[in-house]
């Protein structure tokens, strides 16, 4: 997994609440057996005016000029600013892959759906929770200021605006540690293989029907 330390990047504001993973990456693209290649289909139904299917040349499709991701001022944004309950619905990790493949490293929202939140950490995408009032302020600033950038410092756990305002954020120490060091959590867990076996031995006597 790619390490995450600090990021100073352009912000793209997506002003909708309850953005679900069906919208982030529509079902037809879930047929892929790979982890990559989802970037062009991020927010596919909103981003293009014509329907998309896997295998098409997406560069040839008609883009929706009104959709925020297509506006030139947000090209290259690596921070997505979103509203509450971002990533609700289906557990598809493809949603996170699509955001990452497109180039996003951080999503800021007042709240996230649990499974999406988890999936993000596993892929080096930082889901960052700030108060609704602060998110609202960032929306206003980002929309009013072309080229609006934020600095996200995971070590210091702060988001800093261009005017120097700094907002602290919380993140689980364990997840932060994994993200800062780009650690593979399967490898970490397997270091506790003895504990898992000991649990199994005990459990086998308590609940033998499970084995």
């Amino acid at each position: 997994m790619e390490k995450f330390e600090t990021l100073n990047a352009l912000v793209c504001p997506l002003d909708r609440s309850n953005v679900d993973t069906d919208a982030i990456i529509p079902k037809q693209y879930l047929k892929s057996v790979k982890r990559t290649g989802f970037g062009p289909n991020l927010f596919d139904d909103w981003r293009y005016l014509d329907p998309g299917e896997p295998g098409m040349d997406h560069g040839q499709r008609r883009v929706n000029p009104d959709f925020v991701l297509n506006q030139p001022r947000y090209a290259g944004a690596q921070i997505l600013l979103a509203r509450k309950n971002f990533g609700c619905g289906s557990s598809r990790e493809h949603a996170v892959w699509a955001l990452s493949n497109h180039g996003f490293r951080v999503v800021i929202a007042p709240s996230f759906a649990d499974i999406f939140f988890n999936n993000s950490f596993k892929n080096g995408l930082l889901p960052l929770i700030l108060d609704e009032a602060i998110v609202d302020q960032l929306f206003h600033e980002a929309e009013a200021t072309p080229g609006y950038r934020l600095t996200v410092d995971l070590q210091a756990q702060t988001v800093v605006t261009p005017s120097g305002a700094s907002f602290p954020f919380q993140v689980d120490p364990f997840r932060r540690h994994c993200l800062l060091n780009g650690l593979d959590d399967i490898g970490l867990t397997l270091q506790h293989g003895e504990d898992i076996r000991a649990y199994e031995t005990r459990r086998r006597t308590e609940a033998p029907w499970l084995f």
Partner: peptide, 9 residues
């Protein structure tokens, strides 16, 4: 429900 990385885990 879990994501694919968790399925692997």
């Amino acid at each position: 429900g879990i994501g694919t990385s968790e399925v692997e885990h």
